[in-house]
Amino acid sequence: MTHLDTLPLWAAIPAAAFLVLGSSLALIGSFGLLRLRTFYERIHAPTLGSSWGTAGIVLASIIVFSVTQSRPVLHELLIAGFVTVTTPVTLMLLGRAALYRDR
């Protein structure tokens, strides 16, 4: 892990914090998917992973790559934007499909 050694401490601490935050939220979201009782409750669980779960890991990635390459590396923002726009579409379609099947 040579490239991580070049990272200064002021960048490593927020990156590590965002990584832990993002992955914990994704884990909590999937745990909710497993634990909640009805489908309509479960539909809320994955949004944890796709909102701040993704944002946390994307921010950590931006910090690490921008500092180690000493230029702004922002292409991870595309993933964040893509996930933010697509998750509502899939959840909406799934919700409507479930509603349709229940009626």
Partner: peptide
């Protein structure tokens, strides 16, 4: 800094793998 970050990465990999299992 490498120690802190690799600990966080290991935690994140574990948490995400567990999330995938769920």
């Amino acid at each position: 800094s490498a120690t802190i970050l690799s600990a966080a990465i290991t935690f994140a990999l574990g948490a995400l793998a567990l999330a995938m299992v769920f």
